[in-house]
């Protein structure tokens, strides 16, 4: 039997990604185009949708060329149903609907967050890690139990990436390649720690108080020179990451997991990885190394998850159900492709 191959389309935020993957997990193509806006600005829904619209056709062609495939070699089309921003999501969904009808292929609607996790599991071969999902719009601590990726903790207000992006805008950092990357570079040069509100509630975190605290005295700090931009980035990172590592450790203790996986764009931050690795090693576990293939939004992860679903017997999404959902939660998806349903969680407690 020939290998089954899926193509995945991701456009839930400012990245448009198209990837092609085989049932063995070989990534045949994974192309991306990021919509980058000028410093001090964020990306707007309409412009982002236009960006995706402009590049969908070119990237699809490119992905097929890279993979050396014809549409007829494909088994299914996978697209991000959500969560994300409506207009860019719809742009991609409409394109996929059209392709499905031209190419006569089934469609699989995929959850974006679950895809980060599945790609992480594929690339790192980690069976059952606790997942810290940190991106522009999401901050969640996730573990698999009873047939779903369950959210053990999340942000009570804004996502960590959102907090970083907003602060980057406040201090006019470039959005190229990403605001978070530029914060990380500045933070490396900072050393003076400004104590910021540290808000952990159980396994939940909160960043909005911290951000407004930073913004309140920002001008004063910079004008008096008491704290430099570098110091503030450093303090921001140290505080926010300590909170994230703490809740991840709580979840690991709670479910009895030894491995941790960081996914999502903020996962590229080396300081976050170092802190996670230190915590996990002290618990006798292992941190799954970061990799662009599952940290940064991309099409291959959507293809991988869609293919897993398809092969495990999840029915293709009928075309009138190929909708998008801005707030499609991680724990809504029945993870039927995992054999271990995990009804017997281990963990702390007598």
């Amino acid at each position: 039997m020939t290998k089954r191959i899926a193509i995945g389309f991701e456009g839930s935020a400012n990245k448009l990604g198209i990837g092609i993957i085989t049932e063995d997990g070989d990534i045949l193509a994974n192309v991306r185009d990021t919509f980058i806006t000028p410093p001090g600005t964020g990306f707007l829904p309409r412009e982002t949708a236009l960006h995706h619209n402009q590049h969908l056709y070119r990237l699809t062609k490119l992905a097929l060329e890279e993979a050396k495939l014809k549409p007829s070699d494909l088994t299914c089309l996978c697209y991000t149903k959500g969560p994300g921003i409506a207009m860019p999501l719809i742009t991609v969904a409409v394109f996929v609907r059209t392709l499905a009808q031209m190419w006569k292929l089934p469609i699989i609607a995929v959850n974006h967050c679950v895809s980060h996790i599945e790609m992480g599991r594929l690339v790192t071969k980690s069976e059952n890690p606790v997942v810290l999902y940190v991106s522009g719009g999401n901050t969640q601590v996730i573990a698999f139990a009873e047939g779903k990726y369950r959210i053990f903790g999340e942000t009570i207000d804004i996502a960590v990436g959102n907090c970083f992006d907003r602060f980057a805008r406040d201090i006019h950092l470039s959005n190229d390649p990403s605001p978070g990357y530029n914060i990380e570079q500045l933070a490396k040069k900072g050393s003076k720690y400004l104590a910021l509100p540290y808000v952990v509630k159980g396994m939940d975190v909160s960043f909005s108080g911290l951000l407004s605290f930073l913004e309140k005295d920002l001008k004063k700090h910079l004008e008096t020179g008491e704290y430099s931009k570098e110091d503030l980035c450093f303090s921001l990172q140290e505080t926010v990451f300590a909170m994230l590592i703490e809740v991840t450790e709580r979840a690991m203790a709670h479910v009895g997991a030894t491995d941790a996986l960081i996914v999502g764009g903020v996962g590229c931050n080396l300081r976050l990885q170092d802190m996670m690795s230190e915590m996990v090693t002290q618990r006798g576990g292992r941190i799954c190394a970061m990799d662009d293939r599952y940290c940064i939004d991309n099409g291959a992860m959507i293809a991988q998850t869609g293919l897993l679903m398809y092969l495990s017997g999840v029915p293709p999404t009928p075309i009138e159900e190929t909708i998008i959902r801005q707030r499609f939660r991680t724990d809504e998806v029945d993870v039927v492709w995992r054999k271990d349903e995990n009804y017997d969680m281990q963990g702390e407690g007598m």
């Binding site: 921003i85 207000d157 996502a159 764009g265 707030r327």
Partner: peptide
């Protein structure tokens, strides 16, 4: 409700 209404983009 706040949790459910939060934007999850990105």
């Amino acid at each position: 409700l706040r949790g459910r209404k939060r934007s999850m983009a990105g």
